[in-house]
Nucleic acid binder design. Structure first.
Lengths: 130, 130, 130, 130
DNA sequence: GTGGTCTAGACCACC
DNA sequence: GTGGTCTAGACCACG
C-alpha cells in the first residue's frame, strides 16, 4: 500500500494521510487485520515529521479504523458498528444533505447525480462490511 | 426560517449557520429574492456576536448564495454557475468519494446507500438550478 | 517583499493589502510556493490589527491566490482558472469599460491610452498563467 | 438619455446611476452644457428615493462631471483637467495595474488583452476631450 | 434602521 | 511558533 502527501496542499498532512487510510480500507485495499507501516518507517518514506504520522494513526484509532497492539505495530481494525440504527441513519442523512446541497450548487440535475452515485458506488468494496 | 447554532459543536458557529442557509436555499425553503434576518436581529436571537453572523453572510455572498443591499438587508441571490464542466465533475467526484467512504464506515450496504440517496434527492429543489 | 497601507485612504486597509499581494503575484514579484510574512509579523510591521491582516489573507485564499498551511504560515498558491469562457469575457469587458471611462476623464487620448497599456503590459508575468 | 437601476444589483443604486452618467459623458451620449433630469423627475421615473438621486448627482459634481446652477437644474460640466501631468499619469498607471492584475487572474494572455483593449477603445468618444 | 470595517484581546488547534 | 475563531464594542457609509 502506497501513501502520498503533499506539503503544498492546503490540507494538513495528517489529514491527507488519514483520508487515504480511511479510503483504502473502505475500498478494500487494506483489509481488517492487515499491518500498516510503522510511524518511523512511514515518516522516513514520506519525509514527514513522525509526530504527523502518529497523529494520523491516533485519529484513525479513535475513529475505530485502526488498532494498535503494543510492541507489534498498527493494524486495520475489525469493523464494528457501535452506533445504534437511528444514529447511523442520522449521520448518513447529514452526509446526503451535504452532497445534495453541493451538487445543486454545482449545477447538476437530479438524474445526473443519481447516475454518478450509482456508477461510482461500483468502485467501492461494499461486501466487506455488509 | 429558523436557524440554530451550538457553541459546543466542534464546528465554527459561522460555518454552522453558513451550512444551514446554503441548505435551506438548496431545498427551496428560502427562495431567490427572499430577505434574511438582519445581522443584528439574528445575533440577538441566536445569542451570538453580530460579527459572527456577518461573517457567515459575507462568506455566503462570496459563494454567490446571498447578496446584500446596503441599508436594506441581506437577500437570497439568483443562481448561476460559472465553473467549467471539468471543474464541476472533479468536485462532484470528490464529494462522492467522501460519501462512499463514510457510508461504508457507517456499515451501510451499497443498496441501502443507493436507496437513501434516491429517496433523499426528492426533498431538494433541483429544477431551480438545472 | 514590502507592503504599505494607509489608514487615511478611503479604501479599507485589508483591501489595500489584498490588492498589493494580488498584484505582486500577478507581476511575479511573489512566486508560487513563496512564503508571506506571518499575520502577526505583518501586523506589527504595518501597525495594524492582526485580524485585519488575517482578513486580507483569508480573502486571498478564497480567491485562490494564497493558501495556508496550519502552523507553518501563508504561501502563494499555484494558479488555476475554473471560470467559463463567457464569464471571463464578461468580466474583462466590465474592466475595460471602467478603464476607458476613467481614462477619458483623466483627459487621455485613445492613442495615449493604447500606448500606455502596451507599455505597461510588458511589466507583468503573463506566461505563468496563459 | 435613459437611465436604469436595479434594486437587486449588489451595487448601491446611487453608484449605478453615477457610473451610467459618467460613462454616458465619456462616450459622448451626454455633452458638456446638456441638462440632466431633475432629482425629483428622475426619482419618480426610476421609482427611487430622491435622496439617492441627489447623492449620485452630488458625487458627480464633486468629481467635476456635473455642475449645478441654482434654480436652473443640473448640467454636464465642461471638461477641465486640474490635475498635473504627473498626477494624471499616476492615476492611469493605477488603473492599468488593476486591469493587468485582474486580466491575468482571468487567464487572458497579453495579446488577448491588447486586442480587447484596442477593439473596445473604438466604442468610446475620445475626441471630445483630446 | 441596515451592513462594513477595525480594534483589542481572548482561546483553541496545529506543527 | 503558526493561523482560526469569537467577543465586545467602536465608528462609518448607506437608504
Amino acid at each position: 500500500m502506497e501513501f502520498q502527501v503533499s506539503t503544498s496542499s492546503r490540507q494538513a498532512i495528517y489529514r491527507q494521510l488519514q483520508t487515504q487510510v480511511r479510503e483504502a480500507v473502505a475500498r478494500g485495499k487494506l483489509s481488517p487485520g492487515e499491518k500498516l507501516p510503522s510511524v518511523r518507517e512511514l515518516s522516513r518514506k514520506l519525509v514527514v515529521n513522525p509526530n504527523t504520522i502518529a497523529r494520523a494513526y491516533t485519529e484513525l484509532e479513535r475513529e475505530g479504523v485502526l488498532h494498535t497492539r503494543q510492541g507489534m505495530g498498527v493494524f486495520v481494525a475489525e469493523p464494528s458498528s457501535d452506533l445504534t440504527k437511528t444514529a447511523r441513519k442520522k449521520q448518513l442523512r447529514e452526509l446526503l444533505d451535504r452532497l445534495m446541497t453541493e451538487a445543486i450548487y454545482l449545477g447538476f440535475t437530479k438524474d445526473e447525480l443519481l447516475n454518478a452515485v450509482t456508477e461510482r458506488a461500483e468502485q467501492f468494496q461494499w461486501e466487506a462490511r455488509a
